[in-house]
Amino acid sequence: MRGPRTDRDHAAPNEHAVKRERITMEDYLDGRWINEPLRIFDCALEVAGACAVVLTTEERARDLRHASVEILGHAEFVGEGGSWEQWSDLTSMYSVRAGPELWERTGRRPDEVDVACMYDCFTYTVMVTLEEFGLCERGQVGRFFDEGRATYGGDVVVNPHGGLLSEGYIHGLNHTYEAVLQLRGDAGERQVEEARLALVTAGAGPYGGGMLLAGGS
């Protein structure tokens, strides 16, 4: 499981992250079971915290002191009436429908994404949604992390803030916050070079959605 380790590597320089110590494969496997097959390092951190996002018109955004980013589009899906246990294929999530729809609506491609802030209530959510949003091939997410394609110098930087697994569970809104920081070039030590396009996702199982943000406006 390279996923939780990549996440901690990313969180190390993030002063907002609750957990910043790097972990080894042994640490991961020594982590106690919560609900098998999930161990402690597979689970997001429950924390008290807050963040806010200002949403405004393009015209007003031009007047603001900070650089703004643009919402290129979004797509969401609710399947099986939103019932987790009725969801037909447990190896799949809402992203099987929302993923392709996002690219169709925005006219952009998954391989153009520089920063992917993937909702990570649990590691498994990242694994499925990365594949179904098309950022890596189906069934290959393990190798995607092992080969360093999900970090700096790879295909796309996944959760540069350390995600909900390391930064803490602010209901996923901290993913949007991180994407905006990265696109504005305000991410400091963990800045992704020339970050222009960011994918932000929220939700898991049968319901959720994705949003595509662009910087430079």
Partner: peptide, 20 residues
Amino acid sequence: LHSFIVVRHPAVPGFLEDLP
């Protein structure tokens, strides 16, 4: 049986004596 989990940490109250 379609799928199952093994509850090893009591995330909800109850059944403590049955863990896991």
